[in-house]
């Protein structure tokens, strides 16, 4: 068993520039430095001594090679290893839908998917929907109709909506309810979501 290490005294690389952006950038302020300290991570991994396996994930059209513990869920890996934090962890048990991603086009719960078990498929997260910096018509419709409040369920809702419209471009209200009912919202935005999805469907059909 490795000896217990003294707590490291090295200062962390919290960049001052990032730190100050919070105020300057207004509502879009992203204060967080996403780059993980690689060297430190490696040390941490060695310390923990948990077995790892090498995997490959295809997310939003990009391939990632990663070394993961078999018990890590796809959700954990997206959020904490790939810094794709748009996919949210809420219940961690497949009871809310906030972690919804598309796997080969179908909505699934990434909290109930092991990362090792997500290889060989095309994964799409909320970040993939506006990868070019422009919002997808669905996202625009969500904003236009105020189909969000706290926003924590929103990425999952948008992804489930995308899967629905890909499958059924002209959904009825009941189709929308059936298609999106695996996503829970606590603020109570459902009514607005119905409108947003109907509107987006129209926009998408026109284009």
């Amino acid at each position: 068993m490795p000896a217990r290490r003294k707590p490291t005294s090295s200062s962390f690389s919290f960049t001052r520039r990032r730190f100050l952006q919070g105020v300057a950038a207004g509502t879009a302020a992203a204060v967080v430095a996403p780059e993980l300290g690689r060297a430190q991570l490696q040390i941490d991994e060695e310390i923990s001594g948990q077995p790892r396996v090498a995997i490959r994930l295809r997310v939003n059209g990009r391939s990632y090679r990663l070394s993961v513990e078999p018990r890590w869920t796809l959700l954990d890996v997206l959020r904490n290893r790939l810094d794709l934090t748009g996919t949210k962890r809420v219940c961690d048990r497949g009871e809310c839908g906030a972690c919804t991603v598309l796997r080969d086009g179908k909505p699934v719960y990434s909290c109930l998917t092991l990362a090792v078990d997500a290889q060989d498929s095309d994964l799409e997260t909320i970040e993939g929907l506006s990868a070019d910096g422009r919002l997808h018509p669905l996202q625009e419709a969500f904003v236009r109709h105020d189909a969000l409040q706290c926003g924590f369920c929103t990425p999952g809702m948008v992804m489930a909506s995308k899967a629905l419209l890909d499958r059924n471009p002209q959904p009825s209200l009941d189709d929308i309810k059936e298609g999106l009912c695996g996503n829970l919202c606590k603020c109570g935005t459902y009514t607005k979501i119905f409108r947003a999805v109907q509107d987006a469907a129209q926009t998408l059909r026109r284009s």
Partner: peptide, 9 residues
């Protein structure tokens, strides 16, 4: 049964 995502899995 359950929800669409669960039924997909």
């Amino acid at each position: 049964i359950a929800s669409p995502q669960i039924r997909n899995m």
